[in-house]
Amino acid sequence: MTTPMIETDQRPAIDVRPLAYALHHMIPDLHAMALPGEDWDDMRARRDAALDILDDLLAEATAGAVA
């Protein structure tokens, strides 16, 4: 048994636009598991940098949505 689809005019409770903005600016590099010639420490440093960039992009998108 499937749940019927219900049409609604309500907006979602969560605004995903800042996340969509950030992901748009980070893909495809966000999905790279390991780059050629990259060792464990380099990969961790790249991922830490990606988290910082994600945080900055989310703050930028949120500030733009408020303004």
Rank of each mutant, 00 (worst) to 15 (best):
R11C: 04
I53W: 04
M33H: 12
D15L: 00
W40G: 03
I27M: 12
H24S: 15
A32L: 12
G37I: 05
A45T: 13
D56I: 02
A59F: 05
A50W: 02
I6V: 11
A61C: 02
L57M: 01
W40P: 05
D52E: 14
D48R: 10
I53S: 12
Y21N: 08
D42C: 09
H31P: 09
Y21D: 11
L30V: 09
I6E: 07
D42L: 10
D29W: 08
I6W: 09
P18C: 02
A67K: 07
A45R: 06
D9A: 11
W40A: 14
M33T: 13
I14Y: 02
M1Y: 14
D52L: 10
I53V: 15
A50L: 08
D29K: 04
A32H: 09
H25F: 04
D52C: 10
A67Y: 11
A13C: 09
I53H: 06
A32K: 05
D55A: 02
A13G: 09
H25A: 07
P4T: 10
M26T: 01
L58C: 02
A59V: 05
T2P: 15
D15E: 03
E7C: 13
R46D: 07
M43R: 15
H24R: 15
A49K: 08
A34W: 07
L54M: 03
D42S: 14
P36E: 07
L58P: 00
M1N: 11
R44M: 11
T8Q: 03
A59T: 07
A67W: 12
A50T: 04
I14Q: 02
H24W: 12
T2V: 15
H31E: 15
R46A: 01
L23Q: 06
M26A: 05
T62N: 06
P28T: 02
W40Q: 08
D55L: 05
A59H: 03
A45W: 10
P12G: 05
T62F: 08
L35I: 11
M5R: 14
P36H: 08
H25N: 09
D56W: 04
M5L: 13
R11V: 08
L58V: 04
